[in-house]
Design a protein around this nucleic acid. Sequence first.
DNA 1: CGCGTTTGACCAGCGC
DNA 2: GCGCTGGTCAAACGCG
Length: 340
Amino acid sequence: MSSGRRGGDRHGLYHQHGHSHLGRADGADYVFSGSEMESFFFNQLAGVGGGGAGGADEIMPYSSITDYLQGLDPTGLAWHLDVPCPAQDALVKHELSVDVMSYDSQGTGSAAGEGVVLVTPNSSVYFSSSDGEEEGKSRRCKKGRAKAEEEEVVEDEKDEEDGENSKKANKPKKKAEKRQQQPRVAFLTKSEVDHLEDGYRWRKYGQKAVKNSPYPRSYYRCTTPKCGVKKRVERSYQDPSTVITTYEGHHTHHSPASLRGGSAHLFTPNVHALPPHLMPGGFHPDLISLMHPMGANPNMYLPSIPPPPSPMAAPPLQQHHLTDFALLQDFFPSTMPNNP
DNA sequence: CGCGTTTGACCAGCGC
DNA sequence: GCGCTGGTCAAACGCG
């Protein structure tokens, strides 16, 4: 027995309406524009890096998100920006208006790394990557943490090994130190289910009401020991069919799903060979069936690509049961080069 | 019994 | 300083 378990969800009950901004994808306060996105990616590909107008001392040695996150194949997701997606702006700014993290290392407010990919004709994924170099302006846990964060990486690993005891012992300290400095990628996915299957195992550790949104935000942590990857899942209140999934950190292990099916290796070079939305049917059906642990539903991927929607009137997108699993896999390939 | 979820409490940063 | 908010913890609980 307990003092109100089940159904009492306090986190989901109090909703306040503060300012006009939407619920944030990630607690961030940066709304990027399409040009900024493009700028980022082009900069990345061109090796300009830094993600920012500020010139960027920090040149990110990545030419793609995948590369960025995993340090993998430099050819990675180059198509993300090679192919313009007219609906990107509309999706992000008009329909969803999701704010995203900006990790511009210069703190200039320019995008550190975002983009939108129309993965399927009717399903879209917006992603925002960030290096966590600087939290930007909106995140709170900044002060008094910068120092601790440097040690945190080591501390975290120790804590993970020590297990619960250590966690309990360091509870206050842990709370103070814990957070950030992790790359983030936010996805907007059309899905009816909140928790999208991405091949990894997650443990939910919290749920909070999102300001200005009737939908709560769920916090998940990768269940694999020593893997500190977290993700936040929330639903866009403007478009309830859209799930915003924010990943934070790098997996340090193979995907359980890929170990089962052994198909992950197909994702990386092959899927990247063409932008998904240029593939027949968005994705190749075979890839879908391989990629999604539950198998493919051909009906989810339409055989033709509709004309790009007007940026001014982003049409409602059809709902999908299946998330853009392929892209998620791209971001978390099972093959980790630095995995012992 | 192990694992994952639920959920009240707590902490810290930020804005006023 | 206070209240709000996001993020996390951890005990209780459910399920297979």
